[in-house]
């Protein structure tokens, strides 16, 4: 028995009902993910990756099967406990960033802290600024999302995901809307977070992106068809040196 297991799912299924039609998005997933792992989940569009991430993130409930998070059965948690897990244990990064519009980068990063324990506004501000520093955007704290590039927005979203110091980070196609260089920059950030001890589960359908992780799980039609360690781990910071810089203007502004 592995004592270091963070996530343990058995026979997890999810069925959506759309009128008369049942969509079996997940058909029985068995998986264990340890603390400190860096996992990529791959698979074609519609294979159930997002559905699986939503279950891992306690954003949704499975149709059947069990999900143990830190050895606690999520199905047995009440609303309040689940809210707390979302707030403090998990950091989310979405493909479409999901930043609040007309809200500064700093305020967006502060958001999870607003819903946590009572915290002095100053402390909240400092934590949020620190998270922005980690993603290299401290100088854009007062910018609104529409004043930031896609890559910058995603980094703000990552800052928001880590601001509450979560146990693990779930990222659903975080590079899906980004160009190659920006994608690698984001992966550099994830590798950095992983080296600091964060557990990361990342969905992608791009092979290039999965090469920066340590374990690659492949989904097809709601099932795991392969689960292998990555033999050839790329280092994002090194790849970046080889890539041409396209966003010079961004650095000037």
């Amino acid at each position: 028995m592995n004592n270091n297991v963070l996530i343990s799912v058995r026979g997890l299924t999810k069925t959506y009902q759309m009128g008369e039609v049942y969509v079996h998005a997940l058909r029985g997933i068995d998986l264990d993910i340890d603390n400190g792992e860096f996992v990529a989940i791959m698979g074609a569009s519609g294979s159930g990756k997002t559905t699986f991430m939503n279950l891992l993130g306690c954003l949704d409930k499975p149709t059947s099967g069990t999900y143990l998070l830190d050895n606690i059965n999520v199905a047995e948690m009440d609303d309040q406990a689940i809210t707390q897990v979302r707030n403090q244990k998990i950091g989310y990064v979405f493909q479409a960033f999901y930043l609040l519009p007309r809200t500064t980068a700093l305020e967006n990063v502060e958001l999870p802290l607003l819903y946590c324990r009572k915290m002095h506004p100053k402390e909240r501000r400092e934590k949020a600024l620190h998270a922005l520093e980690v993603v290299g955007l401290a100088d854009r704290a007062k910018h609104y999302p529409n004043q930031l590039s896609g890559g910058q927005q995603q980094r703000v979203a990552i800052a928001r995901a880590i601001v509450n110091d979560p146990v693990f980070i779930l990222a659903d196609e975080p590079t899906g809307n980004l160009d190659t260089r920006t994608s690698v920059e984001v992966m550099e950030l994830f590798q950095q977070l992983h080296s600091q001890g964060k557990t990361i589960v990342l969905v992608t359908h791009e092979f290039d992106i999965s090469r920066y992780t340590l374990r690659i799980i492949t989904f097809r039609d709601g099932k795991v068809i392969s689960d292998i360690p990555n033999e050839d781990v790329h280092i994002a910071s090194e790849d970046l040196k080889k890539l041409p810089r396209l966003d010079i203007e961004e650095e000037v502004s």
Binding site: T83, R86, N87, L111
Partner: peptide
């Protein structure tokens, strides 16, 4: 609606 979804995802409860 989307804003509400985001707030809930980062830890807002129904009550909040």
């Amino acid at each position: 609606i989307k804003e509400i979804g985001i707030r809930m995802a980062v830890g807002a409860s129904k009550r909040d």
